[in-house]
Design a binder for these strands. Structure first.
Length: 431
DNA sequence: TCTGGGGTCCTAGGACCC
DNA sequence: TCTGGGGTCCTAGGACCC
């Protein structure tokens, strides 16, 4: 049934940068960076001409400019990316109903059910690439193989703008000479650990004993990598996986942790997170905050509530307590003497705050109004719960009609600190 | 001259239960 | 007198992916 190379991995090449080159012909053939500038910020995506100079997504703009002096920085048309990517996904959907979209610009397809209608996988893949180029105007690479892992590696090898089909009889021959870094789950740390054992290629990895890998990388990573190196990949192409957490973060540069800054930032983040939870009809019991200090070291603090939250104000309050716990720990203020260390607290310098909600459950439209004691941030769901819920609902409605900035708990309190545009945040949500 | 934003999963110790 | 074993939840940190 799945003996042939019927799993396809389709991946748009340097997606954001390719869109910019599509929209502005003057950028074609030139090194382009979306986001950042030569003075600062971060590069979100680089064209292949820029990648040739070593420029990568996530890289500070000043470094990218140093690597590639002729680099063109563009701000990005974030409002266009989603629509163009959706057009591509619609073309993929014509090849098979079994499409698993894994990000805005990338998807797995299982074409085993449609080869009798559309021809062999290589023909289907070629047709997809032609249509995406002709109808959308973007380059896309496709890998075809017997498993998801092989198909993904094949599309990486095919880039840019190529097609690689791995015939089952030639899997070992294809895989053995490739660097381990191409494998799913091997990042910089794991690659270095493997290199320390003289393991650089997938072939060398395949010849290493499972127990050696388990000792080196831990049980899960060890067994998974061993199986993948031996072409054992049981994962199927599935659609519709529910999110397990919802979060948001905000980089702050380097700022003193004043009560005003912390409250304004957390209010903004809680509004985003709680609003998205309500839009999904979900709520969560575990609230996580992350505090990153100047110098990039970061800590997390969690709290699991008795009842799930999706109210903006409640989430803000819980997050605020957790953030001050973390900062007090950082400043060495003992638990019993919180509030006495204002000067020491204020000396803390933070560079990022984040809120995430997990342990998600379906939230019923009507919350029970329980006759409980006064509001306690650690115990949401009390009398204040339904009042807050009503306020949030009406704010959601105003935003839906007049835009995200139309109303908020803390509208102007947070001056922008050169972060990424909100359009980009919405893209990254990929709901 | 500084380092974005959205996620998933794993490890490991301790609490607690049966 | 001596001290099993498994399961689940919570918390903190970290690797990895797009």
């Amino acid at each position: 049934m799945s003996g042939g190379p019927t799993i396809l991995h389709a991946d748009l090449d340097a997606f954001y940068a390719s869109v910019e080159q599509l929209l502005d012909p003057a950028l074609r053939g030139r090194p382009v960076a979306v986001g950042g500038s030569a003075r600062g910020g971060v590069v979100l995506a680089a064209s292949y001409e820029a990648k040739a100079h070593g420029v990568q997504g996530g890289m500070p703009g000043w470094r990218a400019a140093r690597l590639c002096p002729r680099l063109v920085f563009v701000r990005g048309h974030f409002d266009r990316y989603q629509g163009l990517a959706d057009q591509v996904m619609a073309i993929l959907g014509d090849a098979t109903p079994t499409v698993q979209r894994v990000s805005i610009d990338e998807a797995f397809l299982d074409v085993s059910g449609t080869t009798h209608l559309l021809g062999p996988p290589a023909t289907i893949a070629t047709r997809i690439r032609q249509r995406v180029r002709a109808e959308v105007g973007l380059p896309i690479s496709v890998g075809a193989a017997r498993t998801k892992h092989l198909a993904k590696i094949a599309s990486q090898v095919a880039k840019p703008d190529g097609l690689v089909v791995v015939e089952p009889a030639r899997e070992r021959e294809f895989l053995d000479p490739l660097p381990v870094g191409l494998m799913w789950g091997v990042g910089p740390v794991t690659r270095e650990q493997l290199a320390g054992r003289g393991i650089h290629t997938i072939g060398e990895l395949a010849q290493t004993e499972t127990r050696t890998l388990e000792r080196l990388l831990g049980y899960a990573a060890g067994t998974t990598l061993h199986a993948l190196a031996h072409n054992e990949d049981p994962r199927r192409v599935t659609s519709g996986v529910r999110a397990r957490s919802v979060g948001a973060q905000s980089a702050l540069g380097r700022r003193r942790a004043t009560p005003e800054l912390v409250r304004a930032t957390l209010g903004h983040l809680a509004e985003r997170v709680a609003g998205r939870l309500r839009a999904k009809g979900r709520a969560g019991r575990t609230v996580t905050v992350r505090v990153r200090y100047a110098g990039m070291r970061s800590v997390t603090r969690y709290h699991t509530l008795a009842a799930p939250v999706d109210a903006t104000l409640t989430l803000t309050e819980v997050a605020e307590r957790l953030v001050w716990q973390a900062i007090d720990d950082e400043c060495g203020i003992p638990a019993g003497r919180r509030g006495e260390g204002e000067e020491r607290r204020a000396a803390a310098e933070i560079s990022l705050l984040a809120i995430s909600v997990s342990n998600l459950v379906a939230q019923h439209a009507v919350q029970l109004e329980l006759p409980l004691p006064p509001p306690d941030p650690w115990r949401p769901g009390s009398v204040t719960g339904s009042a807050r819920w009503a306020v949030d609902r009406s704010m959601d409605e105003v935003r839906a009609r007049f835009g995200r900035d139309a109303v908020g708990y803390l509208p102007a309190a947070l001056e922008r600190t050169g972060g990424v545009p909100d359009d980009f945040r919405e893209l990254a949500e990929h709901d």
